[in-house]
Design a protein around this nucleic acid. Structure first.
Length: 920
RNA sequence: GCUCGGGUGGUGGAAUAGGUAGACACGCAGGACUUAAAAUCCUGUGGGCAGUAAUGCCUGUACGGGUUCGAUUCCCGUCCCGAGCACCA
């Protein structure tokens, strides 16, 4: 009987859906295990062959854990709000909900064909009002909260109001936009509106003026991680900086906790490192420098991480946007400074970035006093100093900072080395190592000792204090778009007093068009009845990361209409044990989600501080493009091996008409009209195409669709092949050249159960050799799955099947456990064979076979050996080796002497071919 | 520039703890079955040398050193590739 994968796969997919085989319920008799995929944005292009890579891995893991007796939660849903559907809506007038629903249907069909074991009863869609009700709810909770640094947690803002009424704002240690100082009396005297304005300074979700990335083409602001090199990530439109009043989330309050608890997570080092960079903690000091413009004297504050180098600070530099520029520019320099500021302003973000290796600047004409050397040092302006970081002003230490060095060389400023023996003739010495010199009381200390010593002195002199800076900024939460969650906020007295709307969900209104209004308002401005009890409602919507920040919690209890997740469900499912998805979310979703979860944890809504215990990044699947070579000015194509004999141009050719790099010539002629009469220079009767690894994209004709693989080879082959391709975390090109090997393997599996056309298995007891093969496999597969080394488990299966074929083994006692082992990888074929063996229940309800070491330890021998104090190793030690045979030497006598040093060997532990240990 | 990965046959990739390098698969070559093809099965396959042959020897994990009886694996230096960050003081 043939291996008819189409029929088998249809049958079992229907069976699983009908019987709800993978439905998961709270079950206190079993340990839980939560396996989560990053849910997809349902784009119009459908799934390509790269998407399922992570889904297959997580599915294998889920099925494996189920067989191991865990109660597995394995849900799937859609991140359904987003820009593409909205842009399509602007162009066509089609409601984004319609487009989105259509795409979701297509995604679902494609996923179902691959045989995933999702519990679809738990599906969520972020654009569903019953879902975004809880996104809005969390926002209101953040609105009603502030962050207390003493307690290191978010707390109800009503507590803060009490504090203000009792003691005012002095001396409180809480997160805020700007430090306010008012007394209890002043607070109590404020009007309601004034109080609301003050509270906004402390709320975790707050409305505030900020510099934003504004994209005028899209008509919306973007988050930092939605902008790359001055262009929007989606669409590639130019982005500029602009001050605007926006809703923000006080993520920066959580910077320290987000950084610290990274330690507890089983994430890859590179991903943790990316988050650390993004949070960007730097410990240093703020220091005051006296500055004089010839008329007046001020104290100017700077931030430095290298307080130890203060003796080498030979000049100061201000950011062009710094408020000090105005105060410190002396009359004679005014013209030059203004010219410089104008030139700096004109430069685009991009130009500033590409000119990092050039120093530019202008002197203010003012001087500062170095508080340690007491010398007068000039104050300069340069765009290499950023206004948005630290205080927008620095002390420049050219000997030990490469940017300051470049600047000093350019403008002939003095360079004073501070570390013994460092060479600063051609570049600065930036490393934090060595012994200090030229540094007064710091002389003789190492850099590591000098840094705290210098700060101590600064604090003692009262000219500064320790200070930690973070690069992480608050998340800008407003988007001027239609297709997102509306803010549950209305404005009571003009714009000044935003109030929450507690009746949720606040559903997205219908509008006639999806573009911004003619007056430049967001699209929601088009709705005529967008008001709450007559008051206007906020017209922005929430960004993409809003809906994805807590979806893993909603899966635990998706139908609950009283809470995001019930206490009971959250206590049982706890957190995500395994999260699989791409690295592209490292600094976006994965930061926001952790922040969101920590907030809910602080407020007692969830029981875990961190949402994702273990995280695995699947590598991106790239396209493998094929090329044909056209001889210049002809319609003749020359095969790869002969192309160097001609002058040719390289053309992309559709990978779907190429097999194993051989061009299907007839299909090529039919592909495009201009190739209809093409001629070919062949090698050995074939046209061989060239190839290259590129991004998978339509324009490169290298997109491979999973549906076609399912039709040609079946889902089981697709699943196993995607795993066999290489290590999960590694980026790799999609290459169908090897898929036949996996397909052959599955056909062999099928044939193991058939004699001629009859289903046939033996009932005899298995031999020792057969048991050994089986238990080796159990051990290997188990280890490999736990370590996400799915490619080597596939190899293990292949070896095992070849062994069974050599042994001509058809024994049920061997085949049955083998099917269970294989079922996570190839669920359809194993279900079919399992039922042919007479089982009435799905194989996913079976129990994972237990590894029995007794069948594999026979590989290891322990022999006491004493050979005149000398041991000689034979390179290859076969099974059943005797002590005499160990004696037969291969190492030379002098090597042995070195190794043993004349000791007497008592015991040697040997695995065939490999000495494990020698006891002397 | 900084940080983190990585460099193994024609190709994708194996190699728990330093112990037979190249598992498994693709491709290729040869063979069996077949009128033929497909499918299937068998044999060979890092490079070099010697031999009629079984086989033997040399060499080999980017490059140069080191530690070790023994290094793809550990250490130092160099080169190259990938990813992320990037005037963050």
């Amino acid at each position: 009987m043939e291996y008819n994968f189409t029929k088998i796969e249809q049958r079992w997919q229907r069976y699983w859906a009908k019987n709800k085989t993978f439905k998961s319920e709270i079950d206190h008799t079993k340990a839980k295990f939560y396996v989560l995929d990053m849910f997809p944005y349902p784009s119009g292009a459908g799934l390509h062959v790269g998407h399922p890579l992570g889904y297959i891995a997580s599915d294998i893991f889920s099925r494996f854990k189920r067989l191991k007796g865990f109660n597995v939660l394995h849900p799937m849903g859609y991140d359904a709000f987003g820009l593409p559907a909205e842009q399509y809506a602007i162009q066509t007038g089609q409601h984004p909900a319609v487009t989105t629903a259509l795409n979701i249907t297509r995604y679902r069909e494609q996923m179902d064909k691959i045989g995933f074991s999702y519990d679809w009863d738990r599906e969520v869609q972020t654009c569903d009002p019953d879902y975004y009700k809880w996104t809005q709810w969390a926002f209101i909770e953040m609105f009603h909260s502030y962050y207390c640094y003493d307690e290191q947690q978010a707390r109800p803002i009503s507590e803060l109001e009490e504090v203000f009424a009792m003691q005012g704002a002095c001396g409180i240690n809480v997160a805020c936009s700007e430090t306010l100082t008012f007394s209890a009396a002043e607070w109590n005297a404020m009007s309601e509106q004034e109080k609301q304005e003050v509270l906004m300074n402390y709320r975790i979700a707050y409305l505030g003026e900020t510099s934003v990335n504004w994209c005028s083409v899209l008509g919306t602001v973007l988050a930092n991680d939605e902008v790359k090199d001055g262009f929007s990530v989606r669409g590639g439109h130019p982005v500029e900086q602009r001050m605007m009043k926006q809703w923000q989330l006080r993520v920066s309050a959580y910077a320290e906790r987000l950084l610290n608890s990274l330690e507890t997570l089983a994430w890859s080092d590179s991903l943790k490192e990316m988050q650390r960079n993004w949070i960007g903690k730097s410990e240093g000091a703020e220091m005051l420098f006296k500055v004089r413009n010839g008329v007046e004297e001020y104290d100017m504050c700077i931030f430095t991480t290298r307080a130890d180098t203060v003796f080498g600070a030979t000049f100061m530099v201000l950011a062009p946007e710094s408020e000090w520029v105005e105060k410190l520019t002396v009359p004679e320099q005014r013209a030059a400074v203004e010219a410089y500021l104008l030139a700096a302003k004109k430069k685009t973000e991009r130009e500033r970035m590409t000119e990092t290796h050039k120093a530019s600047g202008v002197s203010t004409g003012s001087y500062a006093i170095n508080p340690f050397t007491k010398e007068q040092i000039p104050v300069w302006i340069s765009e290499y100093v950023l206004a948005g970081y630290g205080t927008g002003a620095i002390m420049a230490v050219p000997a030990h900072d490469s940017r300051d060095y470049l600047f000093a060389k350019q403008f002939n400023l003095p360079i004073v080395p501070l570390i013994e023996g460092c060479d600063i003739s051609s570049e600065s010495f930036d490393a934090k190592e060595g012994v200090m010199c030229n540094s007064g009381f710091l002389n003789g200390l190492s850099v590591q000792e000098a840094i705290p010593a210098a700060i101590d002195e600064v604090e003692r002199l009262g000219i500064g204090k320790r200070k930690v800076n973070y690069r992480l900024r608050d998340a800008i939460f407003s988007r001027q778009r239609y297709w997102g969650e509306p803010f549950p906020i209305y404005y009571k007295e003009g714009v000044a007093v935003p109030m929450p709307i507690e009746a949720l969900p606040l559903a997205l209104p219908e509008v006639d068009k999806y573009a911004p209004t003619e007056t430049g308002e967001p699209p929601l401005g088009r709705s005529k009845d967008w008001n709450y009890q007559g008051y206007p409602i906020e017209k922005s919507t929430m960004p993409g990361f809003a809906g994805s920040s807590a979806y893993y919690l909603r899966y635990m209890d998706p139908l609950n209409s009283d809470a995001l997740v019930s206490r009971e469900a959250n206590d049982y499912w706890q957190d995500v044990d395994l999260y699989i998805g791409g690295t592209e979310h490292a600094t976006g979703h994965l930061i926001y989600s952790r922040f969101w979860n920590k907030f809910l944890f602080d407020r007692g809504y969830v029981c875990q501080d961190e949402p994702f215990k273990k995280l695995v990044n699947q590598g991106m699947i790239q396209g493998r493009s094929n090329f044909v070579y056209r001889i210049m000015n002809t319609n003749t194509f020359v095969s790869l091996g002969l192309k160097d004999q001609y002058e040719t141009t390289e053309l992309h050719v559709d990978v779907n008409i190429v097999e194993n790099d051989r061009l299907d010539i007839e299909a090529f002629k039919a592909w495009r009209p201009e190739f209809g009469d093409a001629e070919f220079v062949l090698e050995e009767g074939q046209y061989i195409c060239g190839w290259a690894v590129e991004k998978m994209s339509k324009s490169m004709y290298n997109v491979v669709n999973p549906d076609q693989i399912c039709i040609d080879y079946g889902a089981d082959t697709l699943r196993m092949y995607e795993m066999f391709l290489g290590p999960l975390e590694q980026a790799k090109p999609w290459d169908t050249n090897g898929i036949d090997g996996v397909f052959r393997f599955l056909k062999k599996v099928w044939r193991l159960f058939f004699d001629k056309d009859q289903f046939f298995v033996h009932q005899e007891a298995p031999s020792a050799q057969e048991l050994k093969a089986l238990h080796k496999l159990i051990q290997k597969v188990e280890n490999d799955i736990e370590q996400f080394s799915f490619n080597t488990s596939v190899s293990g299966f292949m070896i095992f099947v070849n062994e069974l074929m050599d042994l001509k083994c058809r024994k049920q006692a061997i085949l049955e456990p083998f099917l269970i082992l294989l079922s996570p990888f190839a669920p359809h074929i194993t279900e079919e064979l399992w039922s042919l063996l007479g089982h009435s229940q799905s194989i996913s309800k079976a129990t994972y076979p237990k590894y029995n070491q007794a069948y594999t330890v026979e590989n290891i021998f322990e022999y006491p050996v004493s050979v005149n104090g000398k041991l000689r190793f034979k390179k290859e030690l076969p099974l059943g080796i005797s002590a005499d045979e160990v004696e037969k030497a291969i190492l030379s006598d002098d090597q042995l002497d070195k190794y043993l040093g004349g000791a007497t060997v008592k015991k040697v532990v040997v695995v065939p071919g490999r000495i494990v240990n020698v006891v002397c």
